[in-house]
Design a protein around this nucleic acid. Sequence first.
DNA 1: TTATATTTCGAGGGTCCCTCGACTTAACCT
DNA 2: AGGTTAAGTCGAGGGACCCTCGAAATATAA
Lengths: 179, 179
Amino acid sequence: MPRADAQRNYDRLLTVAETAFREHGIDAPLERIARSAGVAVGTLYGHFPNRRTLLGALLRERNEALFELGDRLLAESADDALERWVRAVTEHAAAYQGLAAELVGGADDEASELHASCVRMMRIGEDLVARARAAATIRPDVRGEDVFALMNAAAWLRGAGSAAEADRIVDFALAGMRP
Amino acid sequence: MPRADAQRNYDRLLTVAETAFREHGIDAPLERIARSAGVAVGTLYGHFPNRRTLLGALLRERNEALFELGDRLLAESADDALERWVRAVTEHAAAYQGLAAELVGGADDEASELHASCVRMMRIGEDLVARARAAATIRPDVRGEDVFALMNAAAWLRGAGSAAEADRIVDFALAGMRP
DNA sequence: TTATATTTCGAGGGTCCCTCGACTTAACCT
DNA sequence: AGGTTAAGTCGAGGGACCCTCGAAATATAA
C-alpha cells in the first residue's frame, strides 16, 4: 500500500492533469501540471514515468464506462446499436485533443500503453459490425477497422473543426455503409 | 530585387524545409532546418517571421497546381468531377502531417496566412457540389463545408493511420452523399 | 573604392523535456 | 515517544527548441 503523501500527490496530479489535457490537449506541459498540483517535476515523473502512463491512468475510468456501454449494446442487440457505439466512441476519443491520434496509433502498436483498450474497442466494434451484417443493416464489405477509423477521424474533426461538422461526416459515412 | 545571397538562402531554406516538413510534419524544428540549410537561425527568421509564413511559401506552388485542377474540373463538368476533387485535395492536405489541421483552422480564421487558399478551395468545392446537386448526383442537403471537412478528416487519417483506410472512409462518405 | 543598405550571425533569455543524487518524512518497531 | 529506514520528494542541470536583437559582415551601387 502506498504512503499517504504519495497517494495524495497521485490523486492531485490526476485531477490537475485531467483539466490540463481537456483544456490544452494531451501535449499540455507536464511541468505546468506538476506546478499546478503543488508538486515538483520529479514527483510527477516518479508516479508517471512518461506522458503516456499519465494518459493511460486518466483513461482508465473513462474506458470502464465505455466498455460497459459496449457490452450493454452487444447484449441489447438493438438495430441502432452500431450507430450509438460510433457516436459514443467518437465523443470519447474527442475528450482530449490528440487522443484520437494516440488511439489510431496505439491500435496496431503492440508496445503502446493503450493497446489493450484499443483492441477491446475494436473488438466490440467488430462484433457490432458482424451483427449488423447478419441483420443486413450494413453493407457486407464494411469491416471493423472501417468504423474504428471513422470514429477517430470524426473525433479529430471535433477537436480541429466543429463538433456539428464531425457529426455530419459520421452521418454521411454511416449512410454510405448501409446496403 | 533581393540580394544574391539572400535569394540563395531563401531557396535553400525552402528546399530543406520541404523535406523536413514532409518527413517530420509541419512541427519539424526550425533550428534544425536552418542548420541543414547551412544558415543561422536568425537568417531563417529574417526570411520567414514564423512557421506559418514558411508553410505558406512552401504551399504556394503546390496550391497553384491544385487550383488549376479545380478550374479544369469545373470546366470539364464530368460526372466524377467532385469525387476527383475530393481525392486530389485529400492527397494535397496529407502532404505534411499537421497540414490538415492547419487548413481546417485557417478556413474560418480570417487572420491566417492560408485563409485565402482555404477559401478558394472551399469555393471550388462548393461550385462542384452545386453542380452535382443540379445533376442530381448528390443529396440536396450536402454542403460545401461537408466535403471540405471530409477531405481534411481523410487527410488526417492518412497521416495518422493508413492511406488505404482513409480512402475507404472517403468511399463510404461519398456513397452516403449520393441520393 | 568607398559608402551604405541589406543580410547574416549567434549569444541569450524563455519554456519544456527528463534524470538523478541529496534530502525529507511517513510508518513501523521497540 | 524516539529511532530506523524504506519510500517518496525535491529541484538543479543538461539538452532541445523557440524567437529576438544588436553587432558584424557583405553585396551592390555610386
